[in-house]
Design a protein around this nucleic acid. Structure first.
Length: 349
DNA sequence: TATCCGTGGAT
DNA sequence: TATCCAAGGAT
């Protein structure tokens, strides 16, 4: 069986030389000199990074920290402002839970994040991964961090042939056995960096991998096939209508979506149901078809017919927002795609 | 345990 | 073009 100390030493030496610079990170050298990561920034980055790439997160992280530099500031923010700032990043329950979590820290924990895995796990939006990640990266505790990268590295290092998600407990056990007591924060980031840059899903760069001599799958020549995964069901296609109503003065009809469900808590244009249900138009008008939007969500494809009208009628749902206050960037992507089809000169464009 | 929940980049 | 996939959590 692979010696944990060997793997730890190889990974940390690699990380010391090749770690990527990220705005929420403390470099190995700074950490060795006594620097500590800001738990707020570590937590915020980890929530943003859930199922999301570093490249997609960077600008959002900068905007959030510029506007809300600490957890107290975020806790005091308006819900709609936070949701608008999150728009485009996806998985909007993360933004709702982000606010719940910040307020819980502010009111129940004296404004400081819990410094243990168990304490962190009690917070909204913080699950096993994020709790371990914040505990190890921000507080340098020897917790086992298991994300998709770590699963892949473990599956290859130990040639785990069982497909995910069934293999998860085995992979976690391997990861736990390798977790070091020294430099656990740097180690956690090292494994994830390795998975993100070297031990990639396709075409892993084994030639430059610090663990190539330890890798069982590599020795067997099956590294590119691991981890195996059970086949996912095909995405069905759904259809719907998006109504974009404008007043002659340019105001735009928007509504806040229900807190739970798809795009929960986000602002958007009124829509019909997308699953066969048929909500009526938000007001009577001479609706004009301007095109269709195709958008793929996690578990279905959507084809959306885009209708527009200029009217002074009173809406039965939604609220007209003055054009000066309307920001397409505050909408989820599917809504912004619909807006992009509205002729620019229709009114106030 | 299985399903729901976004988005954009890579291939 | 279609599919896969990413530093997952809630229910």
């Amino acid at each position: 069986m692979t010696d944990p100390a060997t793997v730890q030493a190889l990974l940390l030496a690699w990380y010391d030389r090749h770690h990527r610079i990220m705005p929420w990170r403390v470099s190995p050298a700074d950490r060795a000199a006594g620097a500590q990561a800001d738990p707020y920034r570590v937590w915020l980055s980890e929530v943003m990074l859930q199922q999301t790439t570093v490249a997609a997160v960077r600008d959002y992280f900068h905007r959030f920290t510029a506007r809300w530099p600490d957890v107290a500031a975020l806790a005091a923010a308006e819900d709609a402002e936070v949701m608008a700032e999150w728009a485009g990043l996806g998985y909007y329950a993360r933004a709702r839970n982000l606010l719940k979590c910040a307020r819980a820290v502010a009111t129940d924990h004296g404004g400081r994040f819990p410094d243990t895995r168990e304490g962190l796990l009690s917070l909204p939006g913080v699950g096993p991964y994020t709790a371990a990640a914040v505990a190890s990266i921000a507080f340098d505790r020897a917790e086992t961090v298991v994300d998709g990268n770590v699963e892949r590295v473990m599956a290859r290092l130990f040639q785990v042939e069982e497909p995910l998600p069934g293999a998860k407990p085995v992979l976690v056990a391997h990861a736990a056995r390798l977790t070091p007591a020294e430099r656990p924060g740097d180690y956690a980031q090292a494994v994830m960096d390795l998975g993100a840059t070297i031990c990639t899903p396709r075409n892993p760069a084994c030639a430059i991998c610090p663990l190539s001599t330890e890798c069982t799958a590599r020795a067997a020549g099956v590294q590119a096939e691991l981890p195996r995964k059970t086949q996912k069901p095909a995405k069905p296609q759904r259809e719907g209508v998006l109504w974009i109503a404008l007043r002659p003065d340019g105001a735009v009809l928007l509504e806040e979506r229900p807190q739970s469900g798809l795009l929960g808590g986000m602002a958007g244009f009124p829509t019909s149901g997308w699953d066969g249900s048929t909500a009526p138009a938000p007001l009577k008008a001479d609706w004009q078809r301007v095109g269709e939007v195709r958008h793929t969500f996690t578990h279905f494809h959507l084809v959306l017919e885009i209708l527009t009208a200029v009217t002074e009628a009173q809406p039965e749902r939604g609220t007209f927002l003055p054009r000066a206050a309307f920001r397409p960037a505050a909408l989820p992507t599917v809504m912004r795609k619909g807006w992009d089809l509205v002729p620019r000169d229709i009114t106030g464009g």
